[in-house]
Amino acid sequence: MSLHEVFTACSRAGRAALLGYLPAGYPTLPRSRELFTAMVRGTGEGPGCDIVEVGLPYSDPVLDGPTIQAASGTALRSGFRVRDLFDVVSSVASAGGHPVVMTYWNPVHHYGPDAFARDLRSAGGLGVITPDLIPEEAEEWLAATERHELDRIFLVAPSSTEQRLALTAKASSGFVYAASVMGVTGARDSVGAAAAGLVERTRAHTDLPIGVGLGVRSAEQAAEVASFADGVIVGSAFVTRAEQQGPEGVAELATDLGRGVRAG
């Protein structure tokens, strides 16, 4: 199933897609596989995440708040290597999930964009979210993702001009990632009012689905975002749940949020 097909299926079911994020290798590689499986499957009383964002832990995550910074650091200290990413992606795919990778650009640059796209595709990855790569700098990446049939998901932000929304949406495939607020990742009490406006502005430039991330942590917030977006992206809340309650907690949150996107 491609990302397009996942979003289409959700849309036919009259709901938004749920996207869950965790860093690969957190807290350890084996434990990380269990957490992702829980995220995909949910509790059994309800399905889990429609799409799983596998984060590549990075030394300098400038767009992440304290929760994901700390988790990335834990993964790196427990010995995570970039090559392990592909194993984790494979395990998500074999658990029936739809994996995309979320990564800062330097590890991809260093691995070689073409080799990265090739290895990710053969591991079952469907796309890549690149929070610090803008389309103007992505020439090599556009070619690599074309060649290996990977979706490339760029970000738009409340500060994006119309011109940049158009340019970014045009360069994207799979979906467009809309940052709900100006800021870094982390659970928030309320998702910015800017989010609905940004989604609306972005829709004027594209037919691609639009996922909203940054700040969502509860079923209520998921329902709210689901009312205007095609995808609800949850990161830090999953990390916190994984830390406190392990796979059971992650499964519960996935199912709970899944109810949220169905209510939206």
Partner: peptide, 12 residues
Amino acid sequence: GGRFMPEALIAA
């Protein structure tokens, strides 16, 4: 050189 940075900062 160039700009390898978040979209959110490009406007600034």
